[in-house]
Amino acid sequence: MPEQSAAAGNSLATRRRRRLTGLVVLVVALLLAALASVAFGERNIPLSAVWHAIFTPSGTEFDIIVGALRIPRTLLGLAVGIALGVAGALMQGHTRNPLADPGLLGVTQGAAFAVVLSITVFGMTYVSGQVLFAFAGALIASAVVFALGSVGRGGATPVTLALAGATISWLLLGLTSALVLLDQRGMEVYRFWRIGSLARSEYESAATVLPFLLVGLVLAVLNTPGLNTLALGEDIAKGLGQRVRLTRFVGLGAIALLTGSAVAACGPIAFVGLVVPHIARGITGADYRWLVPYAGLLGAILLLVADVLGRVLAADRFEVGIMLTVLGAPAFIYLVRSVRLVRL
């Protein structure tokens, strides 16, 4: 018996080490992806020039490309990828539904509706204004969904949340369609906004939502132990001393902040949040304390790689949202078919 117990103890430590190693590997991969994102594009920039541009910029052409375009774009991709990956993992955990993308809370449609509203009704033309409208719309929509989904005895449950989110999303989509059909200015902006892109004319306005994204990340990390207990069922979670309503509230707040700021900054790129948690779950299993960081890193890697490939293969003619699905979806389908999936 004692040897066996020691073995069990060892295996706990081994597993932790293995997961930590995996995390380090992902961080290295992310750094490589970020470096590629700075170096490759319409014009490839040698590594020495990248180095020069970052540490001793002197206003050369390469310095300007790197400093004004490539680095902001890479940072945006990094932030948005992490946010969407993390939000997706939380969303699927809270709704226990593999179909739940981070936009399910009504975030994506709320942001879309607000953007179109800002143009057609308020005549907003500044990108910075659109970003703020999108963020506000995302938060309001998700608050409404959460309120509707948790009315009544028992609070929010996976099924009521998912249905409330889908219903409000459809409602907002209907209203958005009405607005863009009635006003061509709305259509003109909406059709480009809808794809989701890391190429922005003003990176500063995208950066205004960064603080909210960081708050969302902190909430998400705080939420993972509670989500672990919720995965065992609400009874067990309560038995383990978890406050179920509070856990749901914090989790959904994190999702709203993360997805809202991501969507506001670069449009809806739902596919990352939908797919990455499935991949991460395949690696880490169902422990959200590991699953969430893995999903965040994988999300950022996936987004950056798709963006780089779009620039290299198609001269940036395809937005990252399109590259992502064209390359990512077949890979995802292959994965679903070949690997035994860990279910929710």
């Binding site: 069922g233 067990i236 169902a286 279910r343």
Partner: peptide, 22 residues
């Protein structure tokens, strides 16, 4: 311990037991 509890698929015994430390 409620009646017939359900563990998420793929959760290992060690992970399950570890959640008791919550």
């Amino acid at each position: 311990l409620p009646q017939s509890p359900q563990a998420p698929e793929g959760l290992t015994v060690a992970d399950l037991v570890a959640r008791g430390r919550h």
